[in-house]
């Protein structure tokens, strides 16, 4: 029983489960699709085109809110996915270099832009407010020891 014992065994099990899932998808279409409980409510997965009016979207979302698209990856929208990933990654990359304030501002800006319909001005306002709020909450009130200005700026 070396260090690889458990990971190797688990890897085999996971590969087996993966094959079983693939086989099942071909042999018997998954009956669970569309039966997700409210908890796992995978929302309307058909994707939302920019052109679709807002109320039509809402209605659609309510009508089959718990249904899964048989092609789960087809409906992924790139704007929110990429923007949120970029926002968190931006923080990871810059927090040591630029410091808390600028990293927070950039992350807030990128995150705010993730939502369809949030314009650049509104995003800037949200990011600025957020930077102020995080400074008050984390530095002033909770007194976390975080560098406000990072290494790159001589902080």
């Amino acid at each position: 029983m070396g260090p690889g014992y458990v990971p190797f065994a688990l890897g085999l099990v996971l590969a087996g489960l993966g094959l079983a899932t693939v086989a099942k998808a071909y042999l018997a279409p998954d009956p669970d699709l569309g039966e997700a409980p409210a908890d796992a409510a995978v929302s309307d997965a058909t994707g939302v085109d920019d052109a679709v009016p807002e109320d039509a979207v809402a209605e659609h979302a309510v009508s089959d809110a718990d249904a899964l698209d048989p092609r789960p990856l087809a409906g992924i929208q790139w704007r929110p996915t990429v923007a949120i990933f970029a926002a968190v990654t931006f923080f990871a990359v810059t927090v040591d270099g630029l410091g808390l304030l600028l990293a927070t501002f950039g992350t807030g800006l990128l995150a705010a832009l993730a939502r369809q319909g949030t314009g650049p001005v509104r995003a800037l306002v949200i990011a600025a407010g957020l930077t102020l709020a995080s400074w008050v909450i984390f530095v002033v009130l909770l007194q976390l020891r975080l560098a406000l200005l990072g290494d790159w700026l001589g902080g």
Binding site: G108, A111, I126, A127, L130, F138
Partner: peptide, 13 residues
């Protein structure tokens, strides 16, 4: 539109 950037930033910090 305001709530979720707050959550993202707080998660990072």
């Amino acid at each position: 539109s305001v709530l979720f950037p707050v959550i993202v930033v707080f998660a990072c910090i």
